[in-house]
Design a protein around this nucleic acid. Structure first.
Length: 486
RNA sequence: GGGCCCGUGGGUUAGCUUGGUAUACUUGUGCGUUCGGGACGCAUAGACUCCAGUUCAAAUCUGGGCGGGCCCA
């Protein structure tokens, strides 16, 4: 069957449509639940999310965080304690106003994020400097009443959310935490084969209640940035209204310094968008629910024999530590090939009478569409090698998107010329700090301020580069990025 | 916040102007033959978003709700 005769036509050049189609056709999410932005997690989609969560858990546990789980409902009275925070979320909270037939004295809200649920309790948990640092995280659903168009994984109303909350005895310790968060992001990004940029948000775009916010952004093939996570420095902004204070070794009481780190199911949206192609999604091996799918070729009179051998193969590979799916469905092999290709299983293994005779299996790689014969005797080594290669290939492809997606530009003229030439992506330039200039730049480029790129993962410093403000030409060493974003 | 559009089996859709019998493809199910890139035959199942109105009669006309989408601020 020729390419253009495919039953399902996916065309990534129309990214927006492609994304919706591929999510649907790969069975990643069930969108027919009758509430906007609240999708059903399908078995396959949920398996992916669980793998991602397990990587996040692994990294948080390794850095001394403890997992907790706070209630979904928050009393209005607690929510209102930090003024900026309310302002930031007021328009998008869901309210619970009734208990049965009775109107509640104090309305309850569904957490849009959990600061105001956790911090009243933190104030009980933190009493001495010996209780610090307090490093917690939870993986829960949060709710935000989005009014704009929703999109699976990228903009939803019920969000599968990871949030780390920490308390420290000083600003310096909190800053160290933020650098640790960046290093966690590095490991997560590496396992998911997702490149990202750490970009400090401008003041007008920081998290409600934060002193500063570092956004974790990736670049989608549509040339729009997608925020994957955020890391916030709160200083004492929350500990004061929530009365989180501790008795120091000096015998005095001090307010705790706090940070948070959040990520969500958007990670899946990014994986789909960055790695997918016209044949479907491609799952990075470290989070693929199934790293290998075994397709038995059931020839006449030999089907029992082949099936038996396929089951043996599944058993062997499971014992080797791989995640295996054996597709025993009574349909043609070709049909199964398409199914698992769309779902992005990294390697398809075919085993039929001819292979069994020769002591081989066929490996078909999802990323390169290549097929090769593998000796059963060398299976483990070959399987590991193939997964490693796919991991590297996906990382390389994704890195290329970001490497080619950011360009340094000196002036508005150069910027508009560049964008007029057909290139699109993130514009990096200098900015003097004046709001008027920011607005002029956004308007001329038709992009918004993403923020100030960080120099690297470790230092916690912003990138500096001497030049002239893109708009007014005044000398400055402040570097900014502008992009279209989701 | 302002404006516009849409809702027919699981999916895609015809029919709506001019009210009466709902079309096709796909998918699902059963049986048989098949199985190295989407198999075939036969049989079979499945829908007009909800409420109210007009009418002898509503998928079709009118109003409202619910759900979905787009554009502008």
């Amino acid at each position: 069957m020729a390419e253009d005769e495919r039953k399902i036509v996916l065309d990534k050049s129309n990214f927006s449509e492609w994304y919706n189609d591929v999510v649907d056709v790969a069975g990643l999410s069930e969108k027919r639940y009758p509430i906007k932005g609240m999708n059903v997690w399908t078995p396959y989609g949920w398996k992916i999310m669980q793998k991602v969560d397990s990587i996040i858990r692994r990294e948080c546990d390794a850095t001394g965080h403890d997992e907790v789980h706070f209630p979904l409902l928050i009393p209005k009275t607690e929510f209102q304690k930090e003024a900026d925070h309310i302002k930031g979320f007021d328009a998008e909270v869901y309210w619970v106003t009734h208990g049965g037939l009775n109107e509640l004295d104090i309305p309850l809200l569904l957490r849009p994020t959990s600061e105001t649920a956790m911090y009243p309790i933190f104030s009980l948990w933190v009493r001495s400097h010996k209780d610090l640092p307090l490093k917690t995280y939870q993986i829960v659903n949060t709710f935000r009443y989005e009014t704009k168009m929703t999109r699976s994984f990228i903009r939803v109303r019920e969000i599968h959310f990871f949030e780390a909350h920490t308390c420290h005895d000083s600003f310096e310790e909190a800053e160290k935490q933020i650098r640790e968060d960046c290093s966690i992001m590095d490991k997560v990004g590496s396992d998911l084969c997702l490149p990202y940029l750490l970009v400090k948000r401008p003041d007008w775009d920081k998290f409600a209640g934060a002193v500063y916010t570092i956004g974790v952004d990736t670049l989608m093939p549509s040339k729009k940035t997608l925020q994957l996570g955020s890391i916030h420095q709160y200083k004492e902004n929350f500990s004061k209204p929530y009365d989180i204070k501790f008795e120091g070794s000096d015998g005095e009481f001090h307010f705790a310094h706090q940070t948070t780190y959040g990520m969500s199911e958007r990670l899946i949206g990014a994986i789909v968008g960055v790695h997918g192609d016209d044949k479907g999604v491609i799952m990075p091996p470290k989070i693929a629910p199934f790293q290998f799918v075994i397709i038995p070729i059931l020839a006449k009179n030999k089907s029992e024999m082949v099936l038996e051998e396929a089951r043996k193969l599944r058993q062997e590979m499971t014992e080797m530590g791989f995640r295996i799916k054996l597709d025993e469905r009574d349909t043609r092999p070709g049909s199964k090939h398409y199914d698992w290709e769309i779902k992005g299983v990294p390697i398809r293994i075919e085993i039929g009478p001819r292979d069994i005779e020769k002591g081989t299996v066929v490996f078909a790689r999802r990323d390169l569409s290549t097929k090769s014969f593998i000796e059963r005797s060398d299976l483990k080594a070959q399987a590991e090698k193939a997964l490693d290669e796919i991991h590297s290939e996906l990382r390389k492809r994704a890195d290329d998107i970001v490497d080619n997606g950011v360009k340094m530009v000196d002036s508005l003229d150069d910027g508009t010329k560049l964008l007029g030439s057909g290139w699109d992506g993130i514009i990096k330039t200098n900015w003097c700090g004046e709001m008027d200039c920011a607005q002029a730049m956004e308007k001329a480029l038709d992009k918004t301020f993403l923020g100030f790129p960080m120099k690297d993962v470790d230092s916690g410093e912003e990138e500096k580069h001497s030049g002239n403000c893109m708009n007014c030409g005044r000398p400055t060493d402040t570097v900014v990025m502008l992009s279209k974003s989701y």
